[in-house]
Computed example of a mutant assay.
Amino acid sequence: MFQLDIVEKCKANDRSAQLKLYRQYCDGMYCVAMRFLKNADDAEDVLQEAFVKAFQKIHQFKGEVTFGAWLKRIVVNKCIDFLKSKKEQTIALDESYMSPVEHDDWTIEEGIGMDDVKEAIVKLSEKYKYVVMMYLVEGFDHKEISQVLDITETACRTRLLRGKGQLKELLQSKKYEMRRNNS
């Protein structure tokens, strides 16, 4: 209830309420931005843009999800927009003919830690990296990911499946390196 009161005050352009919301969410949203951008200056810039957009569009917040989830989506969109703007060329791939196989086994071998997984995600090719990151790390579902990335849900599922395959390969080679270095 407290949060909805603050949001309503923000809708009325109450600056102190906006500051309260900013302080409540800035650290968490900064972490989200850093997971995507890997650069503190870029993350801070994108975070500021995301908050500006959130306060400009706060009248669109209907309370169907938590404010944090709504804001996180804006931050992720801003991060992806930033990354797209830095990339000079993108190659469009028509994945409409592909049909993914559902497989939710995300187990990894013993000895591989979360840092290894995050490091491997960064090494994934661009079109798989964001889908895997949004699904595994940020907890988005296929519908949300497809809306954010402007791809079909089928393409999202396909990219997740292929990204998962690449991720497993990277983690297996990491485990092989660890064994080789320990012998």
Score class of each variant (00 low, 15 high):
41 D>N: 09
42 D>R: 05
43 A>V: 04
43 A>Q: 08
44 E>C: 06
44 E>W: 02
45 D>T: 10
48 Q>A: 14
49 E>G: 12
50 A>G: 12
51 F>A: 07
51 F>Y: 06
52 V>A: 05
52 V>S: 09
55 F>I: 12
57 K>F: 04
57 K>L: 08
58 I>D: 00
59 H>Y: 03
60 Q>D: 08
61 F>W: 07
63 G>N: 04
66 T>Q: 08
66 T>N: 02
69 A>D: 09
69 A>T: 13
70 W>C: 11
71 L>P: 00
72 K>A: 05
72 K>R: 11
75 V>Q: 02
76 V>T: 01
77 N>F: 05
77 N>Y: 06
78 K>Q: 15
78 K>C: 13
79 C>A: 03
80 I>N: 10
81 D>Q: 11
81 D>W: 03
82 F>R: 11
82 F>D: 03
83 L>I: 13
83 L>M: 14
84 K>Y: 11
86 K>L: 15
87 K>W: 06
87 K>N: 15
89 Q>L: 12
89 Q>T: 14
91 I>D: 09
92 A>Y: 10
94 D>W: 07
95 E>T: 08
99 S>D: 15
104 D>G: 09
105 D>N: 07
106 W>C: 01
107 T>R: 14
108 I>A: 04
108 I>H: 04
108 I>P: 00
109 E>Q: 15
110 E>H: 09
112 I>W: 00
113 G>K: 13
113 G>W: 02
113 G>M: 06
114 M>E: 11
118 K>I: 00
119 E>M: 11
126 E>F: 08
126 E>S: 05
127 K>F: 03
127 K>T: 03
128 Y>S: 08
128 Y>T: 08
128 Y>R: 07
128 Y>E: 13
129 K>F: 07
130 Y>T: 04
130 Y>M: 06
130 Y>A: 06
131 V>P: 02
135 Y>G: 00
136 L>W: 12
139 G>E: 07
140 F>R: 02
140 F>D: 11
141 D>V: 09
141 D>Q: 03
150 D>H: 11
151 I>V: 14
153 E>V: 15
157 R>I: 00
158 T>H: 08
160 L>K: 14
161 L>Y: 15
161 L>D: 13
164 K>H: 09
165 G>T: 14
166 Q>W: 04
